[in-house]
């Protein structure tokens, strides 16, 4: 990423005060702690924010694309209306991998048909990112897929400096948020450059895949590589990898009546292309009947099919699926096996 010139810096104290002020007008979600686990959740006070990043189980996509969401309501006498819910929300402290995930999902939900439920939430949300100074753990591989810097998906980006943060402004929404809620002072202009230098030193030799840009081609040529069966034969088809993925967005849709049968709703729920019936049709055919085919499909969505559309790897290297998988299956290992780095 090219070096950005920050206009403002903010002290940590002023930042927390700003969030407190924003709590009057927004629901604020941030990295926080519950029963000793870190997660992204709605906070009631800025004191609940955890600044020291540790990878979360679920990605913050859940604030734009909830696990269950009512999209339609109707009554038994046939009154029917679209249900589109969005609250003014601040997502605070989102990291580059997940910001790239946001960018990709925003595009996917706007592509060809603008998904009203998703896009309403985007419109009502201010995203404040925090850049990562160092690699968060051994499973993360953002640096392999060009995701260690955010290419989009945020309104404001914070870079850690001595007693606070330098602020990069990406959108008008971000700049309005600053003027309304944040007490800042003028930046020198070189803060981000020095943060980036520090980051580069910390990331050291961890560089993108040599053939990152050519991954779609490589995956196209390696549809029958032995790695698919090696990894696929271990897969339990549990779908955990998909539940935790920041860029998976497949869903199922189902109808439910309330118990009194007077009102009903249509609900969409996260679905997983790794589970057996995902591509089964009524005539009995299942177009991806083995775990190997399903793994091939999922990984090709990330590095081939969708990568061509979004012009960036759709796996953002957050490492969540690697941590979640009981069978130790890793997109990074698969990419390496088909020559991503050789």
């Amino acid at each position: 990423m090219s070096a950005q010139t920050p206009e403002f810096v903010i002290t940590k104290k002023d930042l927390l005060q700003g969030l407190d002020k924003a709590l009057a007008d927004y629901q604020v979600a941030a990295l926080t702690k519950k029963d000793d686990r870190v997660l992204y959740d709605i906070i009631k006070s800025p004191t609940e924010v955890v600044f020291d990043y540790q990878p979360t189980v679920l990605s913050p996509k859940k604030f734009f694309f909830p696990q269950d969401e009512t999209i339609l309501e109707y009554t038994a006498d046939g009154k029917i209306s679209a249900k589109i819910e969005a609250k003014p929300t601040v997502l605070f402290g989102i990291r580059p991998c997940d910001l790239n995930g946001f960018k990709i999902l925003h595009e996917a939900f706007a592509d060809d048909h603008g998904d009203p439920n998703y896009l309403a939430k985007v419109e009502q949300t201010v995203v404040i990112g925090i850049d990562c100074e160092k690699i968060c753990d051994k499973d993360a591989f953002c640096f392999k897929v060009g995701s260690q810097d955010a290419t989009g998906g945020f309104d404001l980006m914070l870079y850690e400096i001595a007693d606070g943060y330098a602020i990069e402004i990406a959108t008008d929404k971000g700049s309005q948020f600053i003027s309304k809620y944040l007490t800042t002072s003028k930046a020198n202009g070189d803060e981000i450059t020095s943060c980036q230098a520090k980051k580069a030193a910390n990331f050291g030799q961890e560089k993108p895949f040599k053939n990152l840009a050519k991954l779609p081609e490589l995956f196209e040529q390696n549809k029958h590589h032995a790695v698919w069966d090696q990894e696929g034969s271990r897969c339990l088809s549990c779908g955990s990898c998909i539940m935790v993925c920041p860029t998976c967005y497949c869903f199922d849709v189902g109808d439910e009546w309330q118990l009194n049968l007077k009102k009903g709703e249509r609900v969409r729920k996260w679905d997983a292309c790794m589970v057996t019936p995902f591509a089964a049709v009524g005539s009995g055919e299942n177009f991806r009947h083995t775990a190997t085919y399903r793994l091939h499909h999922r990984i090709n969505r990330k590095f081939n099919f969708l990568m061509k559309k979004h012009n960036q790897a759709v796996c953002v290297g957050c490492g969540r699926c690697v941590r979640a998988c009981l069978a130790d299956i890793s997109p990074k290992r698969i990419a390496e096996a088909i020559g991503a780095d050789s």
Partner: peptide, 13 residues
């Protein structure tokens, strides 16, 4: 990609 505005009736039959 062909990015579009929100279509409020996308899922409304």
């Amino acid at each position: 990609l062909n990015l579009r505005e929100s279509d409020p009736k996308l899922y409304l039959p």
